[in-house]
Amino acid sequence: MASQRFFRPWGFILPGIVLGIITLVVPIVMGFRYSLHRIRLYRLSDQVFVGFQNYMRLFDDPLFMMSVRVTFWFTIGCTILAVVFGLAISAVMSTRGIRGTGAARFYMAFYLVPFVATQVVVGMLGRLYIWEPEYGMINWIIGLVGMDPVGGLISADTALMVTTITNSWRLVPLALLVFYAALATIPDAIVESAEVDGASALTIFFRIKLPMIRFHISFVTLIILTSAFREFDLVYALSGLGPGRSTNVMSLLVYHMGLSTANIGLANAISFIMFGMVAVLAVVYIKAAKLSEMRE
């Protein structure tokens, strides 16, 4: 009886464990193994153990370090833009008098379009219609007010910024949805009490609403941070490596190393470094969030 009590729960979770091992542990171990080998795409079976040579080669390569820097700024930029705009829009949309109206529903649906669209489509839209240097929407608008056109995706100075803005445009709806749902749960009575006490709309937002949804902000920030860090589809479709490798984020570098230069070992080494970085990032962020929670 006692043994049944011990084994029965394991029976329930065993399928999950097996699935986890197959879909997570095995690929990670295989990826790490490949990263320690010299493997070419055209002869996958011909594998030579080289230890940490692939890693050493990467850290010696200024272009890899450049890619790390590009990924850092891209990730930070996307996270800040998406969270700030998500908060701002959701704050307006959840205000009494606007919340639940037809206009609010229309704008919510409008904002969701880039989120539900395929990332490649968003990237292509951005490249061909929005940021295209001669006929794109941005330069058309800029031209209407008599300003010089911007380089957009064809200038090394602006390509990363343009890519970050376009990806943030896609990520804002995710933040908006979560923040809107969170803000909608704040009882009107609390807001009304603050108003009676003479609090301004800004004070109410920053001193009452924001603290009440801080866990949602933490959650969304972490999701966007990790999503932007490993972004591939949109960057590939929008700008590729970018002029002067200005948008050569690490996920793109993995693809480029693995396929364009056929170096599967090196590509796996980059993937594994990315895995390590995102894991550290997530752990640090979660710990920091818990620490701030405990302080309160």
């Binding site: 070419r40 272009l63 450049m66 090394a156 490596l241 002029p243 002067g244 490798r245 200005s246 364009s260 230069t261 056929a262 170096n263």
Partner: peptide, 19 residues
């Protein structure tokens, strides 16, 4: 492709863009 095509393209692009 791994010694000529891609690396030569990268060579020219890296020089032109000042990387």
């Amino acid at each position: 492709g791994a010694v000529m095509y891609t690396p030569v393209g990268e060579f020219a692009a890296d020089v032109i863009s000042g990387v």
